[in-house]
Design a protein around this nucleic acid. Structure first.
Length: 554
RNA sequence: UGACCCAUGGUGUAAUGGUAACACUCCGGUUUUUGGUACCGUCAUUCAAGGUUCGAGUCCUUGUGGGUCAACCA
């Protein structure tokens, strides 16, 4: 049975190109990050799209760093970006490229345009050029330097490259169409003078190409057949095509799709950096951040992110993806793969008064009911255990299936117990422990008691409990769209998005957890061991809660 | 008030001229030694108005609404 999936509009274009025999049916895409920040969930969509579409059509995907602005780009980001893409599960093999690899070629292309009389050196200031460009409603005006001779332009551009002029004093512009309703066609700047140390080319160059002159040509040089980018570049496409045609180089095709918005998230590198700099999060990989590194630390599996990027779809309309879809993908993945463990987040002691003093038995408990091959582990059980404080109520509401005086529940993988009473500290009024009795013949797996218990509780054996810390997370923002107009997004940061629980007790098997490993803590949610952990102090991040079926709405 | 892009349930994506599908969310139910999972059910006549057609979510026109574009950023 093959599931027939409809094509998205990009796949339709590609299949059309293949059917027409374009490029011999070859498909080659690229992911072109600028190494000036960390990758986020929005980049994940682009990464998945480019790699998956190439895979689907038997093609390849290049990784290309778009490093044409040395003022903001750093090697640190290059390394982080590569690690994130690999973690997501994609491999660019030996095709790791940099736009800066092409600086020489790009310079030759520019010289070619100058010689063809299609580019000129402009001495105008940035402000003057902005004025010359006009407005969307009025056409632009010619720069006084537009009519320089080819010889003079060749001379001046060469000297720009040779470092004879100060930064910002001149630019190279291309002669396209000053009357075009498309602002990008009004003689765009393609080279600027900028004495900045470049992370790869060092001080070799003092002129750097602009995006429009670097991106498309890089695609072309690499033989990229389909250059997928976000909608805001749609106005650049005529220029993209113009360069290809004037230069007579390999015709890559740019196709634009809508980037996604995810509720309660932002995907602006600048604003993400603000969160870091203002100390509202602990870093780029804070588990609340929408960065790939943040999601990873939070415990979101790469497979879940890939599924999410697939389910989100590809189209051209503005869209708001509900964060619930992402969480659903995460739960679905973790439900299949995460080992079940027990942890009590807010413990209260429970004493089984008729259980033999000093006795301990090992009770087997399944590692994952969704995966028969996952086996089981043995959980120690004795007279004193911990249960969740919220699993006991002196005076319960009608449909409370948990413990209360006289109530009977099952301890998961152990025995059925009945609550006798609660011990309250007379001076503080605080509940100190719960006294219960158990039914020896109700042991899990060999229950002959015939007793029915409505609720099942998770628990941790007291003498062997491992203490730990759990970081509980909530959405980073208080509104679905923190960038909605009228307010500063920083005022929408949820100041209660992190709650640290320091009094957690964990079952002993958890001492063997590895950093990044995901578990389901029964009845609580999914958690992953944080890198802040030490053998003496385990720290778990809450990845996502379990879906809540019942809530105590009095 | 220039040009370009877009318009299908609460959200996202499908339906490629033949009578609106799938997923998430929400709400209700069945099963359950996780109030999880699984399973079942409820929730839209497609922005508006004209037109073409036997037939329009799909094609055409005009509106309306939303978005994008005027960095020596990418």
């Amino acid at each position: 049975m093959e599931e027939t999936r409809s094509l998205n509009f990009i796949e339709e274009f590609i299949e059309e190109d293949i059917a027409n025999g374009k490029h011999g049916g070859r498909v080659h895409t690229r992911f072109p990050p600028e190494p000036n920040g960390y990758l986020h969930i929005g980049h994940a969509k682009a990464i998945c799209l480019n790699f998956e579409i190439a895979k689907k059509y038997g093609g390849k995907t290049n990784l290309r760093f778009d490093d044409t602005n040395p003022a903001t780009e750093e090697t640190e980001y290059v390394n982080a970006i590569k690690a994130d893409i690999r973690w997501l599960g994609y491999d660019w093999e030996d095709r790791e490229y940099y736009a800066s690899d092409y600086f020489g070629q790009l310079y030759e292309y520019a010289l070619d345009l100058v010689r063809k009389g299609l580019a000129y050196v402009d001495d105008s200031t940035a402000e003057e050029i902005a004025v010359q460009k006009g407005t969307p409603a009025e056409p632009g005006k010619e720069s006084p330097y537009r009519s320089r001779s080819v010889e003079e332009n060749v001379d001046l551009f060469t000297r720009m490259k040779d470092g004879e002029f100060p930064d910002g004093s001149r630019v190279l512009r291309v002669k396209v169409d000053l009357a075009s309703p498309n602002m990008h066609m009004r003689d765009p700047v393609i080279y600027r003078i900028k004495r900045q140390h470049h992370h790869r080319t060092g001080d070799t160059w003092c002129i750097y190409p602009m995006y429009d002159f670097a991106h498309g040509q890089s695609d072309s040089i690499e033989g990229i057949t389909h250059s997928l980018c976000s909608l805001e570049f749609i106005h650049h496409r005529p220029l993209y095509d113009w360069f290809i045609s004037q230069l007579g180089i390999f015709p890559s095709r740019q196709i634009e799709f809508a980037r996604m918005n995810v509720t309660y998230m932002i995907t602006s590198k600048r604003r993400l950096m603000q969160l870091v700099n203002e100390g509202l999060v602990t870093g780029w990989d804070d588990a609340r951040m929408p960065t790939i590194s943040g999601l990873r630390r939070r415990g979101y599996p790469a497979a879940a992110i890939r599924t999410f990027c697939d389910k989100v779809g590809i189209a051209k309309r503005d869209n708001w993806i509900e964060i619930e879809l992402l969480e659903s993908c995460v739960r679905n993945e973790l439900n299949q793969t995460a080992l079940r463990r027990m942890a009590v987040l807010d413990p209260i002691k429970l004493v089984i008064s008729n259980y033999p003093q000093g006795q301990t038995e090992l009770l087997p408990s399944e590692n994952n009911p969704e995966d028969e091959t996952s086996g089981h582990r043995d959980m120690p059980f004795s007279r004193e255990i911990y249960i969740e404080r919220e699993d006991f109520m002196i005076d319960p509401p009608k449909k409370y299936f948990r413990l209360s005086p006289g109530a009977t529940v099952r301890l998961k993988s152990a025995y059925i117990i009945t609550c006798e009473r609660a011990v309250v500290n007379e001076s503080t009024g605080e509940m100190e422990e719960i006294i219960c009795t158990y039914y020896p013949d109700s042991k899990s797996g060999s229950d002959t008691s015939g007793i029915k218990a409505k609720g099942t509780l998770h628990w941790v054996n007291a003498p062997t409990a491992v203490k730990g810390e759990i970081r509980m997370y909530d959405r980073l923002f208080t509104t679905e769209n923190p960038l909605a107009e009228g307010v500063d997004f920083l005022s929408k940061v949820n100041l209660e998005s992190l709650k640290v629980l320091n009094n957690v007790v964990l079952e002993p098997a958890l001492a063997e957890a590895r950093v990044g490993e995901g578990f389901q803590f029964l009845r609580q949610g999914y958690f992953t061991l944080d890198r802040d952990s030490t053998p003496e102090h385990l720290v778990f991040n809450q990845t996502v809660s379990l879906k809540e079926g019942w809530t105590n709405k009095e």
